[in-house]
Amino acid sequence: MKEFFHRRIERNAIGFVLAIVGVASIGGLVEIAPLFTIHETVEAAPDMRLYTPLELAGRNLYIREGCYACHSQMIRTLRDEVERYGPYSLAAESQYDHPMLWGSKRTGPDLARLGAKYSDAWHVAHLINPRDVVPESVMPRYGWLQRNPLRIDDLGEHLAAQRAVGVPYTDAMIENATADARGQANPEAAESSGVTERYGEATNVRVFDGNPSLVTEMDALVAYLQVLGQLTGAAHQETAGRQE
C-alpha cells in the first residue's frame, strides 16, 4: 500500500515549518491586505481636522491609564446603539488614530461621541472622583491628572512621529507643537491665536482644568474627551443621508 502522504511531511522538519507558515499566512493576506488597497474601505471626510498637540497628549494619557479596557469608541450599526450614543462610527473617523481605540468591552459606556456632551467642569470632577457625580459608578479615581504637569517639551517629536506613520501634520504644526499646547489650555496666553489658525476655528481653546497657570495632564485628557466625535461631521451626514 502506498505510504500515507502525511507520513512523509512528518519526516521533514524544514518542510513542516514551511507548510505551517504557508498555510497560516493565507487568512491574513486575504482579509487584511485588501483593506489597504480597496478605496471604499475608508470614506472621504474632507472636513476632518487633526488632533491638536494637547489633544494628542490627552489621547496618550487615555492609553496610559488603560481607559480603552472599559470604554469602546465604536458605535455599531444597531438601532439601540445609534439611539443611545449617536450616529454609528465610520472608518474615516479613526483614519488618523495610531493606534485605533475601538475597544472590546463596555464596562462603562461608549465614548465615540462624548465630545461637547458634558462641561469641562463635569469632566474634571468626574475624573477626580467619579462617584461625586455618578454615585453608582465603578470607575477609578484619577486625581493625579489634576496635579501632574503635562510634559509638553517633546510634543514636536510626537507630531513628527505621527507624520512619519501617515498623519498629515504640517511643518508649522510640528514646530509650534509645544506653544500650541500651552495656548490651547489658556485663551489669555499670546500663543492661543496660533492654535485656531493651524487647527481650525472650531478648536476648543479653554482652561480645561480650571487652572490657567499650569498645563496639567487633566487639561490634556479633558481636551481629548471634548473632541471625541467632533473631528468630522461625516457620520452625521451619513446617517441623515440614510434616513432621507
Binding site: M100, V165, V167
Partner: peptide, 25 residues
Amino acid sequence: LPVSFGHAKSYSLFSGVQDAMTQWW
C-alpha cells in the same frame, strides 16, 4: 514607530480600520 530612541512611547504603523483588523487578527 518610537517617538525617539529616548522614548518608551511609540505610534502604531497602522491606523483606524486597518489597525483594528490587524489587532484582532
